[in-house]
Design a protein around this nucleic acid. Structure first.
Lengths: 247, 247
DNA sequence: AGAAGGACCAGTGGTCCGTA
DNA sequence: AGAAGGACCAGTGGTCCGTA
């Protein structure tokens, strides 16, 4: 019954991205241009799934191997792109990746509003419930394994956009794949944590857009390991308990 | 492995209540006297379980039906007691009930310290993990169904001890049973919520000792229903959405 | 009857691994 | 090979109901 009501609500309320949007909002970092790109990409996707040729005019890219019809659809894989760069071909760029995190946030806010309206328990994080809601709202390209996989990349983007951007440019130039870039995102995050007393949970919870995401296990472990190293070289008692800073 | 390590830690660290404690701390509300009472009760319990007669001197109450040995042991049922009153016979009083909540808080703090030490996810609430830890630490009289059952009673005790105390005295005088008293605890809580914009989650999370407990479903529902009532008699549009206060 | 708590269950966080 | 995500699993929050 709670699920049914969710269904009802998810049919309205959840607008698609606006089809047209002013181009001048482009460089604003909020994903302004992105909305347009996302819409284009989505149309491509839709055309592919339906299996007809497009009935509205558009710039297209590849249309080969369109023959299928009911074949398994996946999102295009990510590639390392510079800030503002749109991926060409059957690829998605990193601005799009980060845009997905913003979309999840919007879905969470909607779920929270519904919960409050009904006096039910209100999630503070992006939970299974939110992923389910997103899927029902038609955002089938959002899923938990993907979002969890790249959380720390998004975290770096939120916490230090300059460093994040520099890293993207460097890895693009070197022609690295997404997995390698993703791995590289850990290091600057650990450095940020070091400066803030190693409390990665506090770092996440303090940031308005990051606070809704669970700290990834591996990032937590890296921070802990690095803290132990730092502490070992600072303290004389190697076996003693690690004492957190108190400033 | 995480479980094994927990075992190791739970063997040390977890002190029993101090056996002796100054009597002058009695009326302080922190459970000062309670420690002594709890210890006495625990000795009774231990003697019963072991099935021998006591090998240390004590004032005892009933010792009948001691014959068993491996019979199923349960905590004595609660009765409505006034503040400061110790239950006589095979009963437990409400100061003891509230004391259990404080104990859970101590166990949570220990679990949190261990988690932090290890760089693991750190619970902010009394979770299954904490109940498991309490059990391993020997506090077998603490269990989840019991603690959840009386959370709102403890909440009233935390939020308005005067009202809570008055309620206890009134219900004791009337000879009401625990279940009736428990039910009666909801109403003043809803009244408190009304004064604070109906946000029972905020009320819990704001209070230092209450913030570690999940808001009980029924209390949440009562607050929501009552808010709807209040709103219906205030607003002219009966079917409209309920707008939260913004002060 | 009133009450304590073992034990169950639906849905969670977490991520592996069969898939493309 | 590199990557996306369906689907599984251990342990959770929640509380019912067989027990005393």
């Amino acid at each position: 019954d709670a699920t049914n009501a969710l269904d009802a609500l998810s049919q309205e309320g959840l607008s698609e991205e606006p089809v047209q949007q002013e181009k001048e909002a482009a460089g604003s970092g909020g994903g302004g241009t992105w909305e347009i790109v996302a819409t284009e990409k989505k149309k491509q996707r839709r055309r592919k799934v339906v299996g007809k040729s497009g009935d509205d005019e558009e710039e297209e890219e590849e249309e080969e191997e369109d023959g299928g019809g009911g074949e398994r659809q996946r999102e295009h894989p990510f590639i390392v792109t510079e800030p503002g760069e749109v991926a060409r071909g059957k690829k998605n760029g990193l601005d799009y990746l980060f845009h997905l995190y913003e979309q999840c946030r919007d879905f969470l806010i909607q779920v929270q509003n519904i919960s409050k309206e009904r006096g039910e328990k209100c999630p503070t994080k992006v939970t299974n419930q939110v992923f389910r809601y997103a899927k029902k709202a038609g955002a089938s390209y959002i899923n938990k394994p993907k979002m969890r996989h790249y959380v720390h990349c998004y975290a770096l983007h939120c916490l230090d956009e300059e460093v994040s951007n520099t890293l993207r440019r460097a890895f693009k130039e070197r022609g690295e794949n997404v997995g390698t870039w993703r791995q590289a995102c850990y290091k600057p995050l650990v450095a940020i944590a070091a400066l803030q007393g190693w409390d990665i949970d506090a770092i996440f919870n303090t940031h308005p857009r990051l606070s809704i995401w669970y700290v990834p296990t591996k990032l937590r472990q890296l921070c802990h390991a690095e803290r132990s190293n730092a502490s070992a070289s600072t303290s004389s008692a190697a076996a003693g308990p690690i004492v957190g800073p108190s400033f």
